[in-house]
Nucleic acid binder design. Structure first.
Lengths: 187, 187
DNA sequence: GCTTTCATCCATCTATTGATACATATTTAA
DNA sequence: TTAAATATGTATCAATAGATGGATGAAAGC
């Protein structure tokens, strides 16, 4: 998490710096020059690693997505009940908000929708697809497919909206309030 | 709604063009030159009406906010039950998504949070504050204040998240699915 | 040792950004 | 009618955007 760590590869440093900026201001809030300054190289060298900005964007979304689901899988390994799994889901997103002090990369890029390259938007869509699939997979078998599907979408939308609201209103407590409410209703 | 209408004032045309762009790509997706082209005037003339970009941004948020609550008040005039009022709330946001083919201006600006001027962010925060106040006001008196507060926040976050998801996944049906689910749970 | 690959830098390009000074119409009001 | 307010245009800035060509060094493989 420390961009000045000399043991970190340049691409790692670049992705960290880019994620930090993009999760705060969005796609257009990231410039090659800023990243160059952040990592103490020249902007042309940034282009060496990521020729076009959309290359950086897709790499960023891919890494974010992978990290999210890896963490999710690890932390739900010993969870048995749906409630336990939902609490893990909530806590991972919560730390993305509180510890990273930023919202979800895909939530922001998803909102910017028409303003970002198609390849990046596809990665975002894929992230949400997988979210819904995972949520559906943990919901009780007794529920119908359509019930599970709508419950999963609601949980996803609620968590994403809760992050956005917490940032807009500068009040992280509202994230807990909303997501607790959602989970309570889902159980 | 027609920016080429000659009866429209220049500021009206400017705000329409700016809203159209900003609700799709975000704050940084709007430039003075684009607006100048959209409205067939010069970019310096745009600066006459809105000296700084944040002036345009605040005017945009103010107008959006006012329009939203005006519509909400008019359309809930004859609504008696909470369910009826919630359905109106849902339908107004739905047409913002479907008819305007864009997400909520404040939802997008809220997500961009740290990347936009403070005055604009304040307007966004105010919009959400008023949303919660309105939602709290229509919830049943039997509920405790804290119950109402968390229910209102959940409804707001859910509707905002639902718009974002519908756009990201290019599927407006998911908006209906989510918001119907939310309203069902609230009743 | 020589060559190839990887990584970085230097210099630069074109396009666009928000913004300004100043001139010129057009409309309104005294 | 004239003066003031309103609105638009001309011309231009400095700053920043994404992107590229080619030189330079460092490391790896043969």
């Amino acid at each position: 998490m420390d961009e000045s760590d000399s043991k970190m590869s340049t691409t790692e440093k670049l992705l960290n710096a880019a994620e930090h900026r993009m999760r705060r201001g969005g796609y257009n809030a990231v410039s090659f020059r800023d990243l160059a300054n952040d990592t103490n190289i020249k902007s042309s060298s940034v282009h060496y690693h990521y020729p076009k900005k959309e290359d950086l964007g897709t790499a960023l979304v891919d890494r974010y997505s992978k990290r999210f689901f890896d963490t999710l899988n690890v932390k739900t390994e010993n969870a048995t009940t749906m409630e336990q799994k939902l609490k893990v889901y909530q806590s991972i997103i919560r730390s993305a908000l509180v510890e990273d002090d930023a919202i979800c990369l895909c939530g922001l890029l998803g909102a910017e929708g028409a303003g970002i390259p198609d390849v990046v938007a596809n990665g975002v869509q894929n992230f949400f697809d997988e979210n819904i699939k995972w949520l559906v997979s943990i919901l009780p078998q007794e529920m119908s497919e359509s019930q599970k599907s709508s419950m999963a979408s609601t949980l996803l939308a609620g968590h994403q909206g809760a992050m956005m609201l917490a940032r807009s209103m500068q009040d992280n407590k509202i994230f807990d309030t909303i997501t607790n409410q959602l989970i309570k209703e889902a159980i």
